[in-house]
Amino acid sequence: MKVRVEYSAQLRTALGRAAEDVDLPDAATVRELLIQLAATCGDDAAQHLVTDSGDLRPSLLVIVNDVATPARRNASTTLRPGDVVTLLPPVSGG
């Protein structure tokens, strides 16, 4: 199945694109999406998705179906074909 993945802030910079369609096995979870992306997107972007030990970044927010949740909390959310997933690395003021 295909899902639409949107990249924000540092992720967008590291990847050089704002969004793309990603092929995933049917009924893949948010965790599976993030692990697949981290394995294929290069180190600059991957560090915003997973830690050095391979855990999901605790501070990465993931928007699925208009709800933003830290990746560690919605890792087991099952994705459906056509879902739009927005990835928000942590940013701050100044």
Partner: peptide, 15 residues
């Protein structure tokens, strides 16, 4: 803290 339980280690204050 529900969103960010700790200071994210990768955040750089100049951006």
């Amino acid at each position: 803290a529900c969103l960010y339980p700790e200071s994210p280690p990768l955040w750089k204050r100049e951006f």
